[in-house]
């Protein structure tokens, strides 16, 4: 078990090293950083001075290890555009994104699993068929169209919810949360639903097909023959077995939620890291782009590590094999 975790950690370190190399290379390939920083009227001497200050004259491996050393301490340098440390900027923006992802992940999980189990058990009910055809909308429409549609319906026409932005924020130390005020909840609900819809559909369909498969197995038949109640069969015996593959997908998806929050945040003008990233791309603000890349990769790596451990926790057969 310990060797399994160590091996996984080793793999994660490799992935992060590769990603850091890619983000570092952004500095050298996305335009000349000095040109981006100084204005038109800067003199040649100014440029040379800044170049030396930033250590851009050093050999590339030296620059890379300096970047790596700083990155490990959470220092990604100054944003070219805002002239503030990147890690501060991310720290400010991160709560907004994490809260959005958390709410949408909960929505996707709760409704996805519930609807998946329901449609798996009541295979031929009219409500199952309704859910299934409705869920097609979730997969086939792009996120921004759903977002714009929701804004039009709930913000413009019905005027129930705000159309964009993050109102009603309460400060808890450096963490700004939307969860402690009605306005906060009102403004998070539309972007969260928009972000969750695709994942919800995936989970629903996966749980349903797994459920259908598990219901055919001998141990379900044997559970029936022992006279166990339908509820025990569906929710203890069947559901636990469907969760093994579902967890893998969910793990990948939570990473995806964070990465894809870019679009949702743009549509709803949600002040999170995704929106920051898009603005950074507009202005070729390389430090922010590099930091965001490393950050997203780190999230993926951590989530996958957790998923692997959960997998072992749920399925005892993997525990013994030790892989």
């Amino acid at each position: 078990m310990l060797s399994f975790i160590l091996r996984r950690l080793g793999q994660s370190v490799l992935v992060m090293a590769a990603v850091s190399l890619i983000s570092f290379s952004l500095f050298n390939f996305v335009g000349d950083p000095v040109n981006n920083m100084v204005g038109q009227e800067a003199t040649r001497e100014d440029r040379v001075f800044i170049r030396q200050e930033l250590g851009l004259d050093d050999p590339i491996p030296v620059q890379y290890f300096r970047f790596l050393g700083n990155a490990l301490q959470g220092d990604f340098g100054l944003s070219y555009r805002i002239k503030r440390p990147v890690n501060e900027l991310i720290k400010e923006r991160l709560p907004a994104t994490l809260e959005l992802v958390l709410v949408s992940a909960v929505i996707a999980l709760v409704f996805g699993i519930a609807a998946g189990v329901y449609t798996g058990i009541r295979r031929n009910g009219w409500f199952s068929k309704f859910i299934l055809s409705g869920s097609l909308v979730g997969v086939s429409l792009p996120t921004f169209i759903i977002g714009i549609g929701l804004i039009y319906l709930f913000a413009v026409t019905l005027r129930w919810l705000p159309s964009s932005g993050r109102a009603g924020v309460v400060e808890l130390g450096w963490w700004k949360t939307s969860f402690l005020s009605v306005d906060g909840w009102r403004s998070i609900i539309l972007p969260a639903i928009t972000l969750s819809l695709f994942q919800l559909t995936m989970i629903l369909r996966l749980v349903r097909s797994e459920m259908l498969e598990v219901m055919q197995t001998d141990y379900i038949k044997f559970a029936r023959a022992r006279g166990l109640s339908e509820r025990a069969i569906n929710f203890v015996h069947a559901l636990k077995n469907t969760l093994v593959p579902v967890i893998t997908i969910i793990g990948l998806n939570i990473g995806g939620l964070i990465a894809f929050s870019v679009i949702t945040e743009t549509v709803f003008q949600w002040p999170g890291t995704g929106l920051m990233f898009i603005q950074a791309v507009d202005f070729a603000d390389v430090p922010i782009m590099a930091a965001y890349l490393c950050f997203v990769a780190l999230v993926f790596v951590i989530v996958n590590l957790v998923v692997d451990l959960l997998y072992v926790l749920i399925d005892p057969r993997i525990r013994i094999a030790g892989r």
């Binding site: 197995t217 001998d218 141990y219 038949k221 044997f222 559970a223 029936r224 023959a225 022992r226 006279g227 166990l228 109640s229 203890v236 015996h237 636990k240 077995n241 093994v244 749920i314 399925d315 005892p316 057969r317």
Partner: peptide, 24 residues
Amino acid sequence: MRRIRGDRIGMIFQDPQTSLNPLL
């Protein structure tokens, strides 16, 4: 019927590899 299954009539299936829930 559920009260009869298990309580009064028990059943044994062919393949012991698959008739037990692997996760419990």
